[in-house]
Design a protein around this nucleic acid. Structure first.
Lengths: 241, 241
DNA sequence: GCAAGTATTTTGGTATACCAAGTCTCAAAA
DNA sequence: TTTTGAGACTTGGTATACCAAAATACTTGC
């Protein structure tokens, strides 16, 4: 795995591997639950086990792979219940972000947010699912970035990585993009007005919508034989991505 | 590093090392900012570099050490500003925990919380700082545990590890233990009453107290030559622990 | 035919060797 | 005396070898 272009910053192999694997996992090349034997997988990447193992360590901290003692690492395969729990946390964090941003955000920060919103309005009619989804994520990250709270940004980003897959698989279809855009518009507005409670509650509701949507989508198969909420994502639409 | 006692569960060396180092860092054996050269430090532990490096990876994910490419790992030395930012996040998470616990917590969960509170009341007059502090942390963890939200528990625990040092260094002296106990009593009460807004706001205020206390304690030296909030913990009271 | 136990193989865990980037030192030139 | 650059040395990065635990397959006895 030669470093593709410049080399000036020098990135350790482990990070390059982690990035490649992360991409592969998020894009579904390595489906949830599949195992990643060290020798085989590292050989495919053309690297030795050592940096590969370190890369697995990085991805496990991000929640994308699970590593168990004396067993092959596997691509994380969280239950829907675990994911909605995490999304509930993320909702609270974004609500906090709304508050803090109103208190300390700069005009430039809000323009960033507004910029992302306008982009989404622009591409809404034409963009494929993945592009629209990425723009959606970028909008939310911009809101968090407006707080200037590094810890909040870090935790939020990490949670988003874990949520990437569900959120994409359940992301808005063409038909309810309008609803998302409307909520985003309200969020951008309340921020610019420095309306703490407005921003906070709007963000919270926006994410609560997502939680309910996920629960609804995965509710049926859960009802048949399994009431424990142990449904997993890879039970369906592997084709999406 | 022989495994001290039982060995049945088989814990990988990396985890044993991580635990030992974590303890050493939290207790101040390895002061913030100090470097941890791989050969030397691993040799002191009687292990090779490989599992030591993996342990460093674990601790870096917990925010206790910082690893930079091609340089020795160093014990994390966050600024007071970064820590108050993180504590602000933690406050929001505990407020969320209060809400969720009121909704879904079981009677046993609340009894756990109350139990920790009673322990603190009991030892308040006699316990040394470290013991009282640990009981305090346990109380808060119990509140979060009462939600049954695994993601919340995980993130909360990780934040607590990062905050351990500041929170201990600025933890309540004998003279304001009463204030802490009073607030804890109110928290336990609101939970048992399933008073969502009460629990949430009380927890938030309780943590906001901590943020202000830290800011106050570190305000002076910050004023002299440095208005950037870049004050670091190891500037004083290394003797505490 | 089935089950339990054992041997074999596979695979993660750890140690070690080697490489390359970083740093430090000291000498030589300005 | 100061600065700078070359070389030695230190230290993290990576590859490989070896060890031990799991998993698997096979055999043997019921």
């Amino acid at each position: 795995m030669p470093d593709s272009a410049d080399t000036p910053p020098y990135r350790p192999l482990r990070e390059q591997i982690a990035e490649k694997m992360r991409e592969g996992i998020l894009l579904g090349d390595f489906p949830p639950g599949s195992s990643l034997p060290e020798r085989e997988t590292s050989a495919e990447l053309g690297v030795s086990r050592t940096p590969f193992r370190e890369a697995m360590g990085i991805l496990s901290k991000e929640g994308l792979v699970t590593i168990r003692p004396a067993r092959s690492p596997i691509v994380a395969n969280p239950t829907v219940h675990e994911l909605t729990d995490l999304l509930t946390v993320q909702a609270a964090l974004e609500a906090l972000a709304g508050e803090l941003a109103c208190e300390t955000g700069s005009r430039e920060d809000f323009e960033q947010v507004a910029g992302h919103h306008e982009t989404m309005l622009m591409i809404s009619d034409t963009a494929p699912a993945l592009e629209f989804f990425k723009a959606d994520m970028a909008f939310h990250s911009a809101v968090v970035a407006a707080t200037g709270n590094a810890a909040l940004m870090e935790i939020h980003a990490q949670n988003n990585a874990r949520l990437w897959r569900v959120r994409f698989l359940t992301s808005s279809t063409r038909y309810d993009r309008d609803r998302v855009l409307q909520q985003h518009g309200r969020i951008a507005q309340t921020l610019q007005n420095r309306d703490k409670v407005g921003a906070s509650s709007t963000l919270r509701e926006h994410l609560k919508d997502a939680v309910e949507k996920i629960s609804r989508i995965y509710a049926k198969q859960d009802g048949s034989a399994d009431h424990s909420g142990a449904t997993r994502l890879n039970n369906h639409n592997e084709e999406e991505i």
